[in-house]
Simulated assay, not measured.
Amino acid sequence: MRYEGKVYRPWPEADSILIQTTLGCSNNQCTFCNMFSDKRFKIRELEDIFSDIEQARKIHAHVESIFLIDGNVMAVRTEFLLAILNKITETFPEIQNIALYAGFNDFRRKTVAELKQMRAAGLTMAYAGLESGDPIVLDNIKKAMKPEHAIEGMAMAKEAGIKVLASFIFGLGGRHRSKEHIKATTDILNIMQPEEIAPMAIAIQPGTELEQQVVRGEFVMPSPLQVLEEEKYLLENLADFDCYYWGDHGNNISPMRGMLPQARVPFKDRIEHEIATNPVTKQDIIQTFSW
């Protein structure tokens, strides 16, 4: 197995085999992220990807889950992705799940027919960064996406039968746009209704543009209390659609996960308990760790 540069995968994919399909991220300008600052976006040679798939077969007797890395693999042309998916299902007939990173705009750049082809070829899940539903926050972080783009991309994925995990960041609006950020994010999630969501508390990554904004005082970090209040608002105002809540990121003040809406009340009660009793709420700025 060959990997170039830093390798990332979502925490729900801890047990998956990783197959590097692209290098880096085609956007690679988000102010809060430096995951792929060490490489330019590039699509690996198909024969090299096939070789890694074959090598994985030699190493692992039974594989049920594979995750395609690096960044937005969905940006690759459809025929190329179909070849990889077909190679995986031929090599691992026991495979149950194939997932990848995607941008909501990547869905929009395909047709629904193409997305359905990928689903038929074995693609089950896409991890897409929503980050925020607030257009001002999205502009500030240079996401190169508008809220309506996320809504459109999600609808196309749903029509194709591809499940989506939408990730977003508590505190990304900073101290002064916390309420607008979480309200807009909750509103857009209620429209999109992804099958899974993964909220995580803001963390300043060393060397990012956001770090410099913090140093210059242009971005003021939220307090732990604001982050908890954002999560409370989200849990109180999400519509009653079936959704798995991956709220157990290591930076979250009260990590928890489970099925919504069934777990809404105990989750909300837990956040309210944290707000009332956790000493961290007395701190002025949330302390989190880089990824």
Rank of each mutant, 00 (worst) to 15 (best):
I197S: 01
Q213D: 15
S26C: 05
R109G: 03
Q20R: 07
P194F: 10
E236F: 15
Y233K: 09
W11Y: 13
D240W: 05
S178A: 13
V73Y: 04
P266D: 01
F289S: 10
A126I: 06
Q212T: 10
K142W: 04
P206S: 04
A157K: 12
I43D: 03
I271E: 02
T186F: 07
H181Q: 15
D52Y: 09
K42T: 10
I98N: 06
L68R: 07
P206V: 05
P12T: 10
P206I: 02
A128K: 13
T124D: 04
Q212F: 06
M145L: 12
V7A: 11
N97V: 08
R9A: 14
K158V: 03
W11M: 07
I43P: 02
C243K: 13
V280Q: 11
G5L: 08
R44E: 02
H62T: 11
F36E: 04
S132G: 12
A61H: 14
R177W: 02
E211G: 11
R270H: 08
P12C: 09
E218K: 15
H62M: 10
G207I: 04
A276M: 13
E13G: 08
E152M: 09
E159R: 11
R270G: 04
K6Y: 02
Q226A: 14
K232Q: 13
E159H: 08
T124A: 07
I275N: 04
G122A: 14
T21D: 01
K183E: 14
N86M: 10
E230M: 14
E114G: 12
L234C: 13
H62V: 08
I169S: 10
I69S: 11
V112Y: 01
A102E: 00
Q20E: 05
Q117Y: 02
F50Y: 15
E4R: 09
E196W: 06
V137E: 05
I204W: 00
A201L: 01
W11L: 07
V7C: 14
I285A: 09
V227I: 15
M200W: 07
K87C: 07
E229V: 08
V164D: 01
L172P: 03
R216D: 11
R109H: 09
R175K: 13
I98T: 05
E195N: 00
A166P: 10
F168E: 00
I169T: 11
A120K: 13
P147A: 10
T288I: 11
T124H: 03
K158I: 01
I162A: 03
F36W: 15
Q20S: 03
P199H: 06
L228W: 00
S65I: 02
L115S: 11
L115A: 11
E195P: 00
S37Q: 11
I43E: 03
C33W: 03
E272K: 12
T89E: 07
N190A: 04
E230A: 12
A75W: 04
Q212C: 05
A121P: 07
Y245G: 07
T277H: 15
M118Q: 05
T31A: 13
